[in-house]
Write a protein that binds this DNA or RNA. Sequence first.
DNA 1: CCTACCGATCGGTAGG
DNA 2: CCTACCGATCGGTAGG
Lengths: 238, 238
Amino acid sequence: MVGGAAQDIRGQILAHATRLFARQGFSGTSVQQIAERVGIRKPSLLYHFKSKDTLRREVVEQTLQHFQKVLPELLLSARDHQFDRVMGSLTGFFRDDPDRARLLVREILDQPEEMRERIAKYVTPWVQLLGDQLERAKERDLVRPDVDVEAYAMQVVTSLVANLAFIASMGNVLPDHGAHGAGTDRVIAEMTRIARASLYVDAASPADASDAPAQTPPSRERAIQTHADQRDGEGKKQ
Amino acid sequence: MVGGAAQDIRGQILAHATRLFARQGFSGTSVQQIAERVGIRKPSLLYHFKSKDTLRREVVEQTLQHFQKVLPELLLSARDHQFDRVMGSLTGFFRDDPDRARLLVREILDQPEEMRERIAKYVTPWVQLLGDQLERAKERDLVRPDVDVEAYAMQVVTSLVANLAFIASMGNVLPDHGAHGAGTDRVIAEMTRIARASLYVDAASPADASDAPAQTPPSRERAIQTHADQRDGEGKKQ
DNA sequence: CCTACCGATCGGTAGG
DNA sequence: CCTACCGATCGGTAGG
């Protein structure tokens, strides 16, 4: 309640700054430009954020915090199964606002030191948690023995962010054959397939009945193929 | 011979511009900064390239032309086998000068329209050629039937460029366990493994005779696993 | 949140 | 390839 309107302005500044930094880059965007979109003067903006660089930091922090807030439920609710669900949710975060992906890629290039720290803070814990789960799945012979679980997890995140950032900027480069025209979906589908196929041991090797917990007809139930086509609704360009 | 020295200056400008654009971005780099490194004055630089934007275009064009000049031999000499060799050479191009990767990523974000055209010109033909080869390998049951060959090829290139650009900027994010500290190799090794494992049909599954077409112990001859462990020397975490 | 204003730097041109 | 110089814009401050 207190300062509700001021909060709103701060939020507007952050929102417009995110958009512009993502699309034009930090040094390609002037404080003046951001202020214009918000509908205030430049010195007023600099009252809320005491420098352009402060604004940049808060924009990035906000994006990563949102990521951190949303990620846990996805990964924790998904054990070693539900592969497509995890991929779909992860993809969804960046699809909901592709500027997030563009912003992160730009920051990696522009502020590498800072981003190293932020990744250590926001991403690495989850990569390690996922890595542990995969390591256990490996012991149960569900995951290929030669997977470098940490590098794999990091790779999936990297591909995802890069792909979404690139598509957001230039659209899909693949020729759109077929009537449906959703090239983005095609890229994401193949990316998901690659991630899945390179992770799991292929169709059951019969002999590991010894190994697998008794309960299961192991490879089939894996729930992994569930939504192989998970994104129908939104990103579609029709 | 004619204008040899002038050519040299032009080349120096291009070289320093590539470096600076890759590391600081286009709008984060001033003409003055480039001129300083070359050891000339700003107006002299603008005699060789009539605007900053012209310089940018030539920098990008030069990088892509080098790529185009070097790629054919790699891909043509490699048929459906020699997977690791192709990946290695492709990786090598960007490893030789990681600024190439950073520059391309930046251009995708900064000049998406232009990059769409350039990718269509420089990359798509090779993606399609590779796609054709993979499609044939698919008919011979070497490649997984569900691979989207074009999307796959594009994905491999995208991952490669993104990974190298990120590593060039921030180094490796993975904890360096093991004494040697070559985290880059580890990332590239896992990226290569993912690309290979998600492409080829897996090693013969003994008991699924029921499932598999009668014909084949197909997977053995594949020549594909040649260097399946090409990261022994370097990337291994030991 | 504003007007007024700062020094610094930007890309680029004139003119030789 | 240089000196000299241009108008425009940059991030930011003073002061209210």
